[in-house]
C-alpha cells in the first residue's frame, strides 16, 4: 500500500464516507469474475475525468493489478470513440498482465455510483409470506424466508427468495424483461416475468432461477448466477452495485 496517498489513509473513528468517495473512482467500477476483470465506465462524463480516474486507479492499486495475465473487458456505456479507446489501451499498457480483449458499448454498464441513487432500493422482507398476502415492490424484492402457497409477490424488478417459493411471483411487473426470479427452492406452480407466464409440472430441487429468453421463460440452476446468468450480460449488475 506504499503508493497510497497518505492524506487518504483511513484512521479508525474517522467517517468512512470521505474515504469511500476519495478512494473509489466514482465513474469506473471494476468487477472480477472467473472470466477475468470487467471495467465499467460511465461514458457520459468528460474524457479527462474518467481518464484521470483510470490512471489513479491503476497507479494506486498497482499491487492488485500485478500477477498472472488477466483478460480485461471494458464496458463503456456508449460506443467509444477511436481516441477514447486508444487512451484506455494506452493506460492499460503500463500493466502488461492486464490484457484488454474487448472495448464494448454495453448497455448494462450504467453502474456508476452517481446514477445509483436514482434507482429504487430493493425491498427486504423478513419472515414467511403467508397465504393470502400480496407484497408489492417498486424495485427488486428480497424475501428472507419462505413464500407460502397462496401468497403473491409483485415487483417491478427482480425477485429473490431466500427460502422456498410456493406462492405466485411476478417479477418485472412494469415490463422489465431483465428481471429474474430466483429462490432456494422453486415449488410454485407458476411464475411470471414481464407478463409472460410459465407453469411447472415438476418442482425443482435446489437453488433455481427463472429468466426471460426471447419470449420464453427458462429455468436454470442458480449457480449460473455468478456467471452473469449463464453467459448473458449481467442485468444483476445494476442492483448489485
Amino acid at each position: 500500500m506504499g503508493h497510497r496517498d497518505p492524506s487518504l489513509t483511513r484512521k479508525w473513528g474517522q467517517g468512512g464516507k470521505r474515504r469511500a468517495m476519495a478512494y473509489l473512482p466514482s465513474h469506473i467500477r471494476v468487477k472480477g469474475s472467473r472470466d477475468g476483470l470487467t471495467f465499467y465506465f460511465d461514458g457520459n462524463v468528460a474524457m479527462e475525468v474518467w481518464l484521470a480516474e483510470l490512471q489513479q486507479l491503476l497507479q494506486r492499486e498497482h499491487h492488485l493489478f500485478q500477477g498472472p495475465a488477466v483478460p480485461v473487458r471494458i464496458c463503456f456505456g456508449r460506443v467509444p470513440l477511436g481516441t477514447e479507446e486508444a487512451a484506455i489501451r494506452a493506460c492499460f499498457a503500463s500493466h502488461p498482465n492486464l490484457i484488454v480483449h474487448r472495448v464494448e458499448a454495453s448497455s448494462t454498464s450504467i453502474t456508476s455510483r452517481t446514477g445509483e441513487k436514482e434507482r429504487t432500493a430493493p425491498t427486504l422482507l423478513w419472515g414467511p409470506v403467508r397465504s393470502g398476502a400480496e407484497i408489492q415492490s417498486d424495485g427488486a424484492l428480497i424475501v428472507a424466508g419462505d413464500v407460502h402457497s397462496g401468497a403473491r409477490l409483485v415487483a417491478k424488478g427482480t425477485i429473490l427468495v431466500f427460502g422456498i417459493l410456493r406462492g405466485m411471483a411476478c417479477a418485472g411487473s412494469d415490463g422489465d424483461i431483465e428481471a429474474i426470479i430466483a429462490a432456494w427452492e422453486l415449488a410454485c406452480p407458476v411464475v411470471e416475468i414481464a407478463s409472460r407466464r410459465k407453469s411447472f409440472e415438476k418442482l425443482s430441487a435446489g437453488p433455481t432461477l427463472v429468466r426471460l429468453e426471447g419470449e420464453e421463460l427458462v429455468t436454470a440452476p442458480a449457480r449460473h448466477l455468478k456467471r452473469g446468468q449463464g453467459g448473458r450480460e449481467q442485468p444483476w449488475a445494476k442492483w448489485w452495485s
Binding site: 403467508r130 397465504s131 393470502g132
Partner: peptide, 12 residues
Amino acid sequence: VRDADRVIGLLH
C-alpha cells in the same frame, strides 16, 4: 395447512 397459513397471516 394452507388455510391455517392464511389464518396465521390474518392473526398476525
